[in-house]
């Protein structure tokens, strides 16, 4: 039987066909060339639409006009002036809000008293639209920098709190028990087990709060701001200078992309232990 030695071969008399392949699909991949091409194509279509009069200048300015507004901003030096104050407000508000939020979130995650006292309060205040409180913020914090920073701080604080305590809640209890079984001190358990264990949740919380910070920048700069990207957008809106409006929004979008890129880098750096 020499045939059997070479493995099973299809019998000759019976009709033979290959098993049709049914797997594959459902795994979309990202392709940066395609996404750039689509992006560029949309811009070109938009420009063409504007030039041909298909898109009314009241509905949307042409991309070239938006570019013109951006160039004007850069030439007059106002781009940097607006951007620097906005970045200062964003940075200070977001960093302070996040640090305070992580601290409070940790307290809620670790201590019964803090959990009982603060958890419901946090959920309630998180839902309050900060913009509605602007007149009060003026009374509480004045119309200087502090009210603008406070707006962003309040907006970023609550997501950080919620992300942190749910991150702490989700740390594998067995790891904590392991730490206790080896006689690790309370501080070591928090620093070496709970915090790193909650880090994925905290970082995704920060990703969300960074987006909220950018959204709130416009609200923050409603209060007596002469400069800032948000103030620039508001003024463009009130003057119906839509090329400037879109230019300002573009700057914010780029800022959002940059921050999300930085956080993605941080995730890759700090969370490389995840599979």
């Amino acid at each position: 039987m020499p045939d059997e030695a070479s493995g099973p071969a299809p019998a000759r008399a019976v009709a033979v066909r290959e098993v049709p392949f049914r797997g594959g699909g459902f795994r979309p991949r990202t392709n940066s060339y395609v996404s750039w091409a689509v992006f560029a194509g949309l811009i070109l279509l938009w420009e063409a639409g504007s030039r041909l009069g298909l898109i009314s200048p009241i509905a949307l300015p042409a991309p070239s006009q938006v570019l013109g507004a951006l160039v004007d901003l850069a030439r007059t030096g106002m781009l940097w002036k607006n951007l620097s104050v906005s970045l200062m407000r964003l940075g200070t508000g977001w960093v302070l809000g996040s640090i305070l939020g992580i601290a409070v979130g940790l307290a809620i995650g670790l201590f019964t008293i803090a959990r009982a006292a603060l958890m419901q309060l946090t959920s309630a205040l998180f839902a309050v639209p900060k913009i509605a409180l602007l007149p009060l913020f003026i009374v509480w914090f004045g119309i200087g920098e502090s009210s603008k920073i406070a707006t962003i701080l309040f907006g970023t604080f609550f997501p950080a709190v919620i992300a942190t305590y749910s991150g702490v809640d989700n740390v594998d209890r067995n790891l904590i028990r392991m730490g206790q079984s080896f006689g690790l001190s309370w501080g070591s358990i928090v620093r070496k087990i709970i915090l790193p264990g909650a880090l994925p949740a905290i970082l995704s919380g920060l990703r969300i709060s960074s987006a909220i910070a950018i959204v709130l920048l416009v609200a923050a700069e409603m209060i007596g701001a002469q400069y800032g990207i948000g103030a620039y957008i508001l003024q463009a809106g009130s003057l119906f200078a839509i090329d400037q409006l879109i230019a300002g929004v573009t700057i914010l979008a780029v800022l959002g992309l940059l921050i999300s890129w930085v956080i993605a880098r941080a995730e890759r750096r700090f969370l490389d232990w995840r599979s």
């Binding site: 007149p135 003026i138 004045g142 409603m222 103030a231 508001l234």
Partner: peptide, 18 residues
């Protein structure tokens, strides 16, 4: 001092911030 809304202007005047 651009304050966007009338209520914000009122608040700023009342508290002497403008």
């Amino acid at each position: 001092r651009p304050l966007q809304t009338i209520p914000a202007c009122i608040a700023a005047v009342k508290t002497g911030q403008v």
